[in-house]
Computed example of a mutant assay.
Amino acid sequence: MKIKLILCLIVVVRGNPTNSSCKEIHLNNKPHKKHVLGMGLNRPYQLAYDHNEHKVFFSYNIGNDTEDTFQIGYIKKDHIKHENVPDVVNGFAIAVDNKDNIIYFGGSEGIYKQHLKPNSTVEKILSNHNIWDMFFKHHLYFIDYPSQHLYKCIHGKSGIETEHQKHIHEKIYQYVIDGDDDTFITNETGLYLIKNGTTHRIFYGEPTVFRAIEVNNKGVAYFSAKDGIYVADKTSNKLEIVVHIKNIFGITFDKDDNIIYSSPYEIIKILPERCK
């Protein structure tokens, strides 16, 4: 993918943003209030949350109408203006290890990592891969583009090495491991659950647009589709909607498991409050 540098219009405001008119929605049938964390962004994807510094990381499009070119940015706590992560070429994918305070960035030229502490630098750890998506649990997993195959990063004698996860043989778009160590994947035919220790796929739904799959701090997998956010009912092997929100691009969770999601131009946190 060709990289271009262009100017992106942003709204510059410092302080804790509030909405001029309260927007109330119902999450799990309980009233919640939307709080805008960031705005003026073009399709923010791949959200991730730093539990220590309370930063929201994301990728967003800085390209034109005919070519997508991505940059990784972040928003600090109580700021609405975003800043950019340097040195990641066409950065698109993000995964965070909040236990060891490390964040990983994936771009068109490989994978980078940064320690989540002040004045830390971005370090490239893997080359020769174009990264589509990433997920961290005990190990860093990534989906390569354009093959759409799944790999696991391991520590080898010469540094980071990759293992092709051959039990997932098909092309996939998303991959997560939940709190039961079960795996969810999406491919061109739909959403599937793979129980821990097996290769059998349990079908969860017809092909649809899942722009994000994320696991909260309790290990529950959440799925954002065209009409809202869903969770999996493992008893019936079906998805259940928890909140109706259209056109979601990314999803993550703060330290208290409040949902943070992105619309085409904003990043929003949902808090259990009523509009007054």
Rank of each mutant, 00 (worst) to 15 (best):
K23V: 14
C22I: 12
K124Y: 04
V36F: 12
P264I: 09
D227I: 04
K34W: 12
L126T: 03
I267F: 05
L37M: 09
G205N: 07
K124N: 01
N42R: 14
H54K: 13
E240K: 15
P17E: 09
L193K: 09
P207D: 06
Y45K: 09
H167Q: 14
N217Y: 08
K76V: 07
N130P: 02
Y145E: 05
D180V: 06
K195R: 15
V56A: 02
I177P: 03
N187D: 15
E240Q: 11
G205R: 06
S20H: 11
G38W: 02
F58T: 01
L140I: 08
G156H: 01
A232F: 05
Y49A: 02
G15N: 12
M1Q: 15
Y173Q: 11
H169M: 09
C275Y: 14
G63P: 12
P31Q: 05
S236W: 01
K246A: 13
G190W: 12
V88L: 00
H35K: 14
K113V: 01
H51W: 14
Y112S: 00
R14N: 14
F135K: 02
G219V: 06
F249Q: 10
G40K: 05
T66H: 12
T69R: 12
I62N: 06
I94E: 01
V36A: 04
I202T: 14
K246F: 13
K276G: 15
N28C: 03
S236T: 10
V96C: 03
I75K: 03
Q148E: 13
H26A: 07
S236L: 12
C22K: 12
D180Y: 11
V13E: 09
V11L: 13
F203C: 00
S263F: 08
T66G: 07
I260L: 06
